[in-house]
Every structure is written in structure tokens, then in C-alpha cells.
């Protein structure tokens, strides 16, 4: 029960897992932006090859990844099909009633299919190989420049980390309260809407009381250990930029520059 929420993260120790999360996030965004700017049919194939290489080295498994994006693929196929059949300009090859296949429609459909596939595969890969806590660390390191305009970055990252840590705990709490009320005879899945709303009150009330109890405990523990906010604090998790990061960074940037210089121009 504790890991079903973050089911997207697949723990591992592959080359991709060990890359700096900041680097991964930057390159993910870069590839998505590049995939939106391309117009040739060859460039998406190169980007897909890069994705395939990344999936292979990440050891998350093709089956696992494809299972995760199956829903998106259905949606994208449907959208592309509609674009293929409904847009009419350029040379028309075939038509029936309001549907037609034109050269322009085919081009748009194929390009939008590739763009979304690339964006989804690469962001899925980022989420599969980066733990939520690493993502939150990355976000707080991105917020670091805001320190100069007196935004309490440490407080924000502390709030995000505690919230992330307590999500599984509070999920368990909700289930425990529901079980306790069920054993006293409350039936949650019966009755009309008004009855169901009424039934949420015996869950919400203990939930919020326990929430504040836990907050009190944690805050006392932190104060007793001498925690004071808004000061430079060391972290148990350090993000390191290795030589591998530099290699991957330069390689991806070179590929994208080459795509734009050789194929797109």
C-alpha cells in the first residue's frame, strides 16, 4: 500500500538512474522543446532512437514502459487519426462525406503523433528513473536563485519534502479510519449522493485531528533537535555532477544541434 502512489518510480542502479536529476530534467525539457520545433520526417526518428537508447540503458524494461504509456498511445492515435481525416489542404488523395486524406493532413498527423510520443516517452523515462524525493530536491535547487529576492527557499523545500514523506503515512491513516468505521457498521459504498457526503464526515473528523497530532509530534521533535529555518543546511541526499553527466549533456546537445543544422535547415 505504501508504494502504490509512486508506482511510476522504478528503483534501480542503472546508468540513467545515476545521472544528476538536474541534468536529467534539463535534457528532458530540451528534447521535448526540440521535438516541438522540428518539421522534417527524419528528425523525430533520430530523437526516437535517442529515447530507445536511453530506455535500453535505464533497465526499466520495455514492457513496463509500454504498459505505462499504453493509455496515452491510444489517445494520441485517436487525435492523429482525427487530424488525418478532418484537415483538408494540399493534394487530396481520398475523400468520403466529411472525411478525406490530404497531403497536408497526413503530414500534420504524422508529425503530431511523433511529437507526443517523444514527449511522453522521455518524460515517462525521467519519472521512472528519478525518485519523487530527487524531483523535489531538483525543484528546490531550481528555486535557489529566488533567495536573492528573499523567498524562503529552505522553507519551501522543507514543506515539499515533509509533504512527500507523509503521503504514504496519511494514505494509511485514511484506510485505517475507514476500516475502523466499517467495523462499527458504517457502509461507505451504499446510498445516494447525500448519504455518501454524510458518510465522509466520520472519516474527515478523525483524519484532521490525527493530522494535527502528527504535526505537533514532528514539530516538537524538530524543535528539540534544534531545527531553525532559513539557514544554510546540509542534506543527507547530495546531488553530484559526475563525468557521465557531462558526457550525456554534450552528446544530447550535439545531436540536437546536428538535427537542426543538417536536417531541418
Amino acid at each position: 500500500m505504501d508504494n502504490f502512489i509512486f508506482g511510476q518510480y522504478s528503483p534501480g542502479d542503472s546508468f540513467i538512474h545515476r545521472l544528476d536529476p538536474r541534468n536529467k530534467l534539463f535534457l528532458t525539457i530540451l528534447i521535448i522543446v526540440a521535438s516541438l520545433l522540428i518539421h522534417s520526417w527524419v528528425s523525430p526518428l533520430i530523437l526516437l532512437l535517442v529515447c530507445a537508447f536511453a530506455i535500453q540503458t535505464s533497465h526499466v524494461g520495455w514492457h513496463f514502459l509500454i504498459h505505462g504509456i499504453k493509455f496515452f498511445i491510444h489517445m494520441i492515435l485517436l487525435t492523429s487519426l482525427l487530424q488525418l481525416l478532418l484537415s483538408r489542404s494540399g493534394k487530396v488523395y481520398w475523400y468520403f462525406w466529411i472525411f478525406n486524406i490530404s497531403s497536408f493532413g497526413a503530414h500534420i498527423a504524422i508529425m503530431s503523433f511523433f511529437r507526443f510520443i517523444i514527449a511522453i516517452i522521455i518524460s515517462m523515462l525521467f519519472l521512472l528513473t528519478t525518485s519523487p524525493i530527487e524531483i523535489s530536491d531538483t525543484i528546490s535547487s531550481l528555486l535557489n536563485p529566488l533567495k536573492f529576492i528573499h523567498v524562503p527557499v529552505e522553507d519551501i523545500s522543507l514543506t515539499i519534502s515533509i509533504a512527500l514523506r507523509f503521503v504514504p503515512t496519511m494514505t494509511g491513516e485514511v484506510h485505517r479510519i475507514m476500516d475502523a468505521q466499517k467495523s462499527r457498521g458504517v457502509q461507505f459504498h451504499k446510498g445516494n449522493v447525500i448519504k455518501r457526503i454524510k458518510m465522509s464526515i466520520p472519516i474527515m473528523f478523525p483524519l484532521f485531528i490525527n493530522t494535527f497530532k502528527r504535526a505537533e509530534d514532528l514539530a516538537s521533535a524538530m524543535i528539540l533537535r534544534g531545527y531553525t529555518g532559513n539557514r544554510y543546511r546540509s542534506s543527507i541526499r547530495k546531488m553530484h555532477w559526475h563525468i557521465n553527466d557531462t558526457i550525456v549533456f554534450i552528446a544530447i546537445i550535439l545531436i540536437i544541434i546536428l538535427i537542426f543544422l543538417l536536417i531541418e535547415s
Binding site: I162, V174, T211, R214, A215, E216
Partner: peptide
């Protein structure tokens, strides 16, 4: 922006956010 929150309030904010997230999943 939130300089006036002490440690206890920060922790309360964080755990309320976690509860809010959990409740968002039961939709």
C-alpha cells in the same frame, strides 16, 4: 512571503498538503 511561519506551522502546512494530496486521489 511566508517568513512569519514558525517550525510548527511549517510542519502543519506540509502534513495538510499531504492529506490534501491523498484526498485528491479519492475523486
Amino acid at each position: 512571503m511566508e517568513n512569519h511561519f514558525d517550525v510548527k506551522q511549517l510542519v502543519q502546512l506540509a502534513i495538510l498538503a499531504a492529506v490534501s494530496y491523498v484526498l485528491m486521489l479519492i475523486a
